[in-house]
Design a protein around this nucleic acid. Structure first.
Lengths: 228, 228
DNA sequence: ACCTGAACACCGTTCAAGT
DNA sequence: ACCTGAACACCGTTCAAGT
């Protein structure tokens, strides 16, 4: 697969001399840096230094940092929409979409916040919603139910994964121990289940996802039965 | 119940003359300011000015800003745990907990992030988890299922509500219009359901919550039947 | 014992100046 | 047309100095 950037540089062999900044190189540098060192490490000064350019040069290509972040977010979403495979089984399709989305949010903890604060829906986001809505209709949901379930699923995936991204494995261990050490008279339930708490956020994410999909399957069957 | 702050001031009756800062007054000022102007508006300089004190005086009472934020988060969680009523019907109990939690996260968009990055579980958080786990056991879930469902529910509530907090009503309108204006050949599903999309985040939150509770009720019944 | 105030090392952003 | 660099108005935090 050839990315737009590669295609463009092939058409400008003299670009080695002129070099110059482009939106694409800025975004790639940003995503690379955010991948390696986390999003909070990326200041405009740092980003400029990474490209051998003054920080304020970025303002020639983006109105402000928020626009840069939105463009980077769309790049990630569009890449995901490109990679995702269409499935015949709606439940497999939604599950793959959810897990791929989760991986993206885990790698980019600020991403969901950027998407949510965008004035217009990002193009990549619309494409992913289209996939998801297709699966939900295939599950048998009516238009209103599909829209609500789509929002709820997107919120669950983005919300929980963004929060999970901030807690390391050692924190999970500490939380589980703290729950186990709670006084059993005041916290009977917490103590009773403490050995199952905070054993891998991926498992509890998957559990919640299956709950949502179970209920969606049920509503879809009911809706189909009512219509026939 | 006597808070640590109250206990400390009782042992120093001359504190009226000195006045002085206390952790409690700092936290109350912080929460008040965050309520009125949003959490991103509260810098330590601003917080100090609000109390007529130098910003760095706060460092006499909190190690750093993160500790202050964690303490403020615990104050909010504990207040919620105080207010919440115990219900006989597990489903009503979970729903009330979820809606009260959502209101808190909507009012404090950074709260979930602070809770998740805390090294130890905040006391108020443990109390709320105890309530939630009790309801899930009452629904018929086994210990492992209850623990997983508790994490998934907490993530759904905190995650989606924190994201919803960042999008105003006008943004919802803009997103719905944008989806309706998508080309129908490439986005048939998005266009078809667009009139139901982004009509109030509260409704889709409630929809997702009901999906989760439906599936939990089902698993609870299955588990109870298997055991009897 | 507690608070102040200068200082440090950062931010995002603007704008006149360079080429 | 595009980039630079000084400057502005902020941050959180440290530390010597005050009282």
């Amino acid at each position: 697969v050839t990315t737009p950037d590669e295609a463009r540089s092939k058409h400008r062999p003299e670009s080695v001399r002129t070099q110059g900044l482009t939106r694409a190189t800025i975004l790639d540098t940003y995503i690379g840096l955010a991948d390696r060192e986390g999003p909070e490490a990326v200041s405009l000064r740092r980003l400029g230094a990474e490209m051998g350019v003054d920080a304020t040069a970025i303002y020639r290509h983006f109105r402000d940092k928020a626009e840069l972040l939105a463009a980077a977010a769309d790049r990630l979403l569009s890449r995901l929409a490109d990679e995702v495979e269409r499935r015949d089984d709606w439940r497999i399709g939604v599950t793959e979409l959810a897990l791929a989305g989760r991986a993206m949010y885990l790698a980019h903890p600020r991403l969901a916040h950027v998407i949510a604060s965008s004035d217009e829906p990002l193009p990549g986001n619309s494409r992913l919603f289209e996939y998801l809505l297709g699966y939900l209709r295939a599950a048998g949901l009516g238009p209103r139910e599909a829209a609500m379930a789509c929002e709820a699923l997107a919120g669950y995936i983005a919300g929980t994964s963004s929060l999970d991204a901030e807690t390391g494995e050692d924190t999970n261990v500490a939380w589980r121990r703290a729950f186990a050490a709670l006084p059993a008279d005041a916290f009977p339930n917490a103590v009773a289940v403490s050995s199952y708490l905070y054993r891998g956020a991926n498992d509890s994410f998957r559990f919640g996802l299956d709950l949502l999909l179970d209920a969606i399957a049920l509503r879809g069957e009911e809706g189909s039965a009512r219509r026939s």
